[in-house]
Design a protein around this nucleic acid. Structure first.
Lengths: 113, 113
DNA sequence: AAAATATGCAACCAAGGGGTTGCGCGACTA
DNA sequence: TAGTCGCGCAACCCCTTGGTTGCATATTTT
């Protein structure tokens, strides 16, 4: 058990933009909407927030770039939907960190005894 | 099981700065260092990265503001250490999101049948 | 065909972020 | 007492970000 793999710099560079995408209240709100409300169009999403449609589009682009969301054209609408895979990545990354912390504590404990 | 609590806007506003703090490769690197390497001083941390000591100080301030790290004075040095509680918050937040997603899928499934 | 709707694209703007350099000051060390 | 070491503070810089408005374009709807 435990004894986590070291966190490589490459993995850091991968994880940072992912967390950065999550680091905005509006974007988190969008994720929540898409998560629990199913696929939605841009304007329908915009109506839930206090900023312009274009601003929402930019946020969706950021989320898309991070792989947290996916879009498809349907007639004159663009429909956005949640993409759970990348969220799992973020999850795993946090776990890796806290596991590393636990290991360090274990080592310290072993050293004291 | 499941049927997650709704994610309140208040919680969004709390989570966003936390993820934002994690959204930078250098800061993630600092966390990894403090996580597995134990408490360290600013200059000692700086030596591990390609940027100036002052830049590292700024990053540490951001992490501290987010509650991910804690500092204390020791002689002429300032020692920084990892603070696991907030990381747990981030972790829980992600779980809440994915649980909400799973619930939505369950509802859809139930509807189809 | 005309009107309405949904989106895309571009320009622009203010603020914040990540980085630097320079300097001053308190705290150890020789 | 000098010197060195570790930090903090402030000013400055450039680029990114989150936001806006205005207009063009494609797709329905009437």
């Amino acid at each position: 058990m435990s004894r986590a793999d070291a966190i490589s710099p490459a993995r850091l560079k991968d994880a940072a933009p992912l967390f950065a995408a999550l680091g905005d209240a509006t974007r988190l709100g969008l994720l929540v909407s898409l998560c629990s409300g199913g696929p939605l169009s841009v304007t329908r999403l915009s109506s839930k927030f206090a900023v312009s449609r274009q601003a929402i589009t930019k946020h969706l682009d950021v989320l898309s770039e991070a792989g947290l969301v996916r879009s498809s054209r349907q007639g004159r609408e663009r429909i956005w939907e949640f993409e759970p895979k990348r969220l799992e990545d973020a999850h795993q990354y946090l776990e890796r960190l806290s596991r590393q912390w636990d290991d360090a504590l274990d080592r310290l404990k072993a050293f004291v005894e």
